[in-house]
Structures are given as C-alpha cells and as structure tokens.
Design a binder for these strands. Sequence first.
DNA 1: GGAGAACGGGG
DNA 2: GTGTACGTTCTCC
Length: 918
Amino acid sequence: MVQATFDVRLLDSTYSVTPKKGVEGSKDREDVNVRLYGKTRENQSITIICPDFKPYFHIFWPTDALRKKLEEHEDVLSIKEVKKEYKGSIEDFLEVRVRAPWLVPKFRTEFELQHKTLVVKNIPEEILEQVRADPEFTVTGDARLARLTPTDRVYSQKLIRTYNLFQYMDKEEIEKFELKSVFFAADIVFTNRFIYDYDLDTCVRVTGELVDDPGEYTTEIVLKAEKFEQCPIFTPKLKIMSFDIESSIKYGNIYCICFTVYNEVDGTKEDRQFVSKFGVRGDNMSPAEEAERNEDERRLLADFVAEVRKLDPDVITGYNINNFDLQMLYDRSNALNPPPEGRKATAGEYMNFGRDSLGMSRRENRTTGFVTWDIKGRLLQDAWLSVKKELRPKREGLGYVSQQLFGDTKDNINSTRIDEEWTNRRDEVVKYCLKDAELALRILMHPRINTLNKLMDVAIPSRLPVKEVSGGQNRMIESLMIRMVDRENVIVPMASGETNDYEGGFVYDTKPGLWEWVIGLDFSSMYPSQIIKHNICFTTLVKNKAEAAHESPIGACFVSKEKRYGITPRMVEGLLNSRKEAKALMKKARQDGDMDAADYYNRLQNAIKILANATYGYFGAKFCRWPYSRYIAPSITSWARDEIRTVVASLESRGFTVIAGDTDSVFFTSKNHRDLDSCKMLGFQVQAEFSAGNMHLELEKVMERFFAHAKKRYFGKIIWPEETLLVRGYEPRRTDSFDLQSETMTQVFQIVLEGRPDEAVRFSKDIIDKTLKGKVDLSKLIISKSVNDFSSYDNPDSLVHVNVAKRLQEMGYEFTPGMKTPFVITNGSAQPIRAEPVIEGLEFTARPDYRYYAERLAMGLARITEAFGCDERTLMQGNSQRTLDLFGEEKPAPVAAPLVQKEVVKKVKTMSTLDMFM
DNA sequence: GGAGAACGGGG
DNA sequence: GTGTACGTTCTCC
C-alpha cells in the first residue's frame, strides 16, 4: 500500500464496469471506474483508475406514475428532486442515477417523450382560455376537441401537470405522455461527465495508491486515485511511434511491419522490423502451405502487438494509416483469427496494442463512410491528415511532401509492383518500409506541421485530455460551457439536431483590377467581441423588448450585462483575457531571451483564439445544445455585418476607394497616400477611429500591389509588416490538373505583381496559342488519377480515368485497383470525355485534344486577365490584337468599378463541423 | 445552384 | 460508446 502523488497531463479517458465484492443482489453491485491515461511531469506514462462514479441525467418533472416506475426500476440507483433554470424560469427536474453508462441510451429509448401536441376533449372553457393566452401554445379546435401545440415538449408536460389534463385525454393520448419525459444532459460522454464534475483540467495533481501489478495496463505507473487537486500546467515529453506496412494487394497478406519510436525525452529512436519468412503467395497453394503461411503472419502480428505494448508509445502515427495500415491490421488479424469456439469475436480484439487489454476500434461515418480508429490510451494521428490541414500541398504523397519539407524522399521501390519487389529485393523493401515510417514521423514533427504540440496547446484552455481535442471541436466549447452552466443551476439540454440557415458575414463586392498602395485592416476577434459587446447568450435572451438592452438587427433581444451577465460572454471574455495574459507573457519571455517560453505562449494564445472563435460557430452548429439557433448565431453575424459596414461607409464617404472586404476585414486605397509611411499613418488613424470598447480594428498590412478578381479571390505583395506574398482563392487544383496549367498560373501571378499586366495578358495568350498549335510538351498535359475497383463505381462508364484503366486492361496490361493511371485527353468534347493511357516506355501516338487543353488554360487564366479587359474568348483569339491600355494615371483598376456597390450576403448553412471557424 | 459522388493517400 | 466524426472538387440534374 504505497501512497504517491503525481502531476499528470491527461491524454485519454475510458471507463470500466466491474462487479463489487460482497454486495451481490444489491442494486449498487458494480464499480464504474473512469480510467485516465497520461504522462507525468517526470515524463512517465500513467494509468489513473478513478473512484467509483455513476452516470446520471435529468428529466423534466415526471408524472407520479413515471416517478414510481423509475424508483422501482432495477437499473436506477437513486432519484433526486432538483430545481434548475430552463428558458428563464426555475423548473422542477428529477436527477436519475443509473448503474452503468451503457444503460443511459436504453432509458432514453424507453422513456423519452416523443410528442408535444395534446389532443383534449371536453376541456373546461376557462382552461382553454388560459392556454390560448399562453404565447408558448398554439390552439386549434374548440373546447369539445382541441389540439394544444406548444413550442417545446417541456411545456406539454408542464400543462398536463398544471391542469391535470389526463382527465380530458383518450387512453391512447395519455399513453403518449404518461410514462414519458423530456431528457436533459443524457448525451454527455460519460468520461467527460466525470471530468466536468471533478472539475479536472488537462493537467491534474493526483494522489492515490500505487498498484503493483499492472495487469492489463502497459503504462509505467498504475495508480488508484483518491484525490484530485489543481496543478500548474506543463507539457510533457512524448514517445511517438510511426509505423508502416508493406503488403500484397493481390493476395491480401502482410509482408512486413516496421516502426520507429522517437522519445522526446532524450531524442533517441528505436526501430523494429517484423518480417514474413515467406515470399509471394501463389494462386494454388496447398492447404498445408496456406496454414503455415497464416501461422507466420499471426506470429508477425502478435510480435508487433507485444513490442508496441512493451515500448508503450503515447502517440501512434504513419502516413495514411487511417485508410490503409490500420484497416490492414484490423482486417488481417480478424481474417487470421477466426472467432474462438462458443464466442463471437470482437473485431480488432487481437490488435490490442492500446494501454488496456481492449483491441483497436473502428468508427465509420454513416453518410460519408470515412473511417477513423481508436486505440485506448494512445493518441492516433495520421501524418497525412496533418499535412492536408497545415500545408494544403498540391500533391499529398509521402515522397512529394518529404521532398518539399526537408529534401528527403522515399526509397526507390515501386510500390505498385510490391509483389515483384518482394521477390527480387526483399531486404530493400524492408528498408523502404522503415524509411516510410521515419518520413511520416519527421513530417508530423516538422515545425510547419507540429500537430502534437498544437493539440497539447488547445487542450489547455479546453481543459480536456488531449485526445478529446483532436476530434469534434464542440467538446472544447462544451467542456467550458457545461461546467459553468452546471455550477449556476441551469439545465443542460440535449442537442436537438435542429437546423437553421441564416445570413453569415458581410462580403464586399470586390472591385477587380490591379491596385497600388492598398491598406488592409481587420477587426480582431470580431465574433467574440460581438458576443461580449451585446451580452449575447441563451441566459440573456428575452422575448420582451422592454426588458432588453440590446436588440440585434434581426430582432433578437438580450438583457443588459448589469441585469444578468450571460454565461457565454463571460466565458468568451475570460478566454480573451487569458489570451492577453499569454501574449504579455510571450512578450516578457522574448525580452528575457527565453525563446522556448515565448514560443509556448505564442502557441497558447493562438489556441485560446481558436477556442474563442469557435464559440460563435458552436451556436450555429446543428449539434449545439441550446435551442436558439434562430437567435444567437444570426444575431452575432448581423451585428458583425453592421460593424464592418459602418467602417466601409465611412471610408467611402471620405473619398477613399474600398476594394474588397470580408466579414471582419477591409482593403482600401487612397489617391493621396502613395508610399509606405503615409499608408501606415492613414492605417493607424483609421485603426484608432474605429477601435472603441471591446472592438479593435487593427492595421494588418500594407500592400505595394494588390490584384483583386472577385469575392475571396485576390493576391498581393505585402510590404508591411513583413514582405510576403498573399494569395487567396487561387490555390492550384490537384492531381486532375496538368503541369502546364499550374506552372502558367504561377508565372502569371509574378508578372502581374511586377506591375506588368499587359505582359501577363501577352504571356497568357502566347501559352494558349502554343497549346492550340500543339507546341507544348506532352508530359505537361498528363492528367493522373487513381482508379479503384470497377465495381465500386455507380456509373463507371461515365468516368474518363475508369475507361482508361479498362483500355489498359484490353491492351493486355495488368490493372490493380487503386493504381494511379496517367492519361492524355484526346477528345474533350465527346461524352464521356475520351482519353488515351500514357504507358512508360511506349511512344504516345494519339493526338491530344489541344483545343480542350487550351480552353481549360484560358478558363483559369481569364480569372486574372479579365480584370485587364481580356476574357476567356479573347485569350483564345491569340496575340494579334492591339496592345491594351492598362494603367491609368493614378494606377487604379483599368476596368471601371461598378457604380452601385452590390452588397452580397452569403447564407451560412448549419455547420456539422467547427473547423471553418478555426 | 444544390445534392451527392469521387478523390486523395496507402501497397 | 451517455457518440455520428475529412475537406474539397467535380458531375449531374
């Protein structure tokens, strides 16, 4: 019985249900233990077994019958009457505590109220009158037969109780309501409920009893927790494993698994290789050989699992492991290990390389089919997804990205012919496999990607285990919100899934053209600031205008901060204040020369900003718990539109030219400010003028040249505060684009920003002309796409690349599903489009459809040249035209700006993810 | 113009 | 696991 105390950074949480001893037959016969996994301040891995904690939820004021039923229910441990605030009034609720988390959904299925309209017969006229007078109800019919429809199911229940309405209802109608109630807080992930109730942070000081025998756990320390306290935040060093698998697509077997484990503590790396003893499988193997090979592969997988458990990494990564490697481990282990007799095998159970004894688990999005994985106690981070998010590279392949980031690349193995390579160069394939694992690790750890540090940082203000913040971002908001709401005795509703489209940010109708000396300003934290400025919250929303201090442009009313300071503005203000603090600490650290600390505070302030901004998004999302989607998010955007419009109008009234603007930013230029110093001075002047209270308009950049084409499409040369290139909305397309297209686009950007639009037009026309005449390199016209199994397409014949793969097959080449297939378009006007495959070592004899390529080039380039009076058609006409007169005296846009500024408001759709606000 | 399919990436 | 969770581009109506 050794007591110990540790400071722990939490990484993940799970729970277990185990029988209690000596209480058989009692209702409370099990321990429900949350298990927290993390890393101590001394960088040791730890499993924390938390004290018994039972799930609970709230239901609205039930009937006596339902209350009795619950009291006697064999899975209900206790019920308790509680008073909580709901939609501005204090109401009666019942807190129901049940035996185990998995029972909560069962209670919901059985007892959740599904109806709200009450059908009543022969109701006394005076009751009906009172219901008619209630703004929450719509009444149809008359006293003989009336339908009473409330805005909300809670009010049906309340009405029944207030007027004892069952006496006026049919048996059938009573059944819909009698043993039912509205549920609250019954969809909070159980381990999160524990974290909120114990008010844990991402770091926690835990005291308890050391467990000698780690049993199923793989961590260095296993502790039975008795006490939790606060502790200073820290970021421990992690152990990161990156792995890769080589396998035969044709036969489905695994050839080898390699991994490298990097320990941040001392910078060491350990490599492991698990290699099959056998060569390529044949088509007609004897059952004996089959069995022998399967046994070998089972050994390989078991060795892999044992070694991961032994080395106990905190993070598992690799390249495209979500879609490939993890799926492979899962499928293969299931296939090789048939269910034990008399028991159904749990999928993934043999791949139990998590920090408990359970296997890997698979989660599939029902609508998109996107698969993600979970391994208990360890973070799972696909380096490919990190690359997509942070870099948005043109190509996303491991080799290309490694080359871009650090000039290294994959070994020279042809992975599309892995069976052949395995036969001829087995050792090199194993080396290649390990190299891939190393590259993925280096990518994940690269300063420009740095996903792990970012996750660790966001977890701090979110007050959650790190794994929680790598998934749905709504948990970050709820972590803060639910704790505040609980503390103030406000009921926590369940997400209704209700959707509501509303108007989003203000988008100024861009004045296209090439501009010089452009000043860019934006409001910092526009949406959070609006929440604070107008005290916007579900706790401050009122129907009565007379009570309100703030009425939003869409007509929602909120009381003053003095009357009731809303939970949401308080939360957001807290975030913005701690961001200020972090920024101050960053500055101080920088002055003290502590660059590591400065870097940390910089990441922290950024993480807090993300959280503050996501708060608005939460109220517009369909998974928002507070059912005010028609008021809160639309009010925030409407006030924001007013704010930025005021700035635009004021600038224009003084004769400045506003060129572009979006949500919280504005770009403008002045005839009288034609150098950096005067632009800066004007920018700061405007900044001071529009910064008041908690609204801050900031001078963000001065651009020497700025090209605007349309809403959200522009590029420019920033010269202050730093010289950089700004490109928005012109990101080159991906693999279905051809090299000639992206190369030409980049060159045109450069020419335009050199101030030579005439030359940009000439250059564009020239390239298009050459393309039309077929004077371009064939290799620059190749389009490459991967082709999956033909049967996976609904309509394979309509897809060019699928037809190309079929042609390849007809020509006698081997086709493997998933293979990347290069081709050149030979007839772009046919339906479906015709193309010929490009085969290595074989001369391409077909004639490319040069017109098709020229048209696609023109389509892209015209987006830029249009501003100089040269549209797509003119581009196609070639260079025999007159020279264009492009620059005016003050060098504003050569194309006349529209006289009437059309204001375009984009509709925002209800979000399913908060990503776009981050 | 909106809904839904396909891609990407892995061997 | 007290869940429902890829981002973007293209095709088709």
